[in-house]
């Protein structure tokens, strides 16, 4: 697992209170990890803060799974 993937997993476990084993690349924040729309907004904000990126709303809408978040951050973080 990349350093980014490890950190993303850690943030999701912390914010959503889920077990690390549930945080698989395919896992959807809302369908699998119990997040509601506010949780998802908060997750995106945490990713922005942790990885020092600004994720535009239209891109944030496409980040719905753990894998999508990791891919986006690997491509865009500084």
């Amino acid at each position: 697992m990349s350093a980014i993937a490890t950190k993303v997993t850690q943030i999701i476990v912390e914010k959503l209170g889920v077990d690390v084993s549930e945080v698989t690349p395919e896992a959807s924040f809302t369908n699998d990890l119990g997040a509601d729309s506010l949780d998802t907004v908060e997750l995106i904000m945490e990713f922005e803060k942790e990885f020092n990126v600004s994720i535009p709303d239209d891109q944030a809408e496409n980040i719905q799974t753990v894998g999508q978040a990791i891919t986006y951050l690997e491509e865009n973080s500084k």
Binding site: L38, D39, V41, E42, M45, E48, K49
Partner: peptide, 9 residues
């Protein structure tokens, strides 16, 4: 502005 979505609630 980077206000947390849970700030108001």
């Amino acid at each position: 502005p980077k206000f947390n979505p849970f700030f108001i609630p």
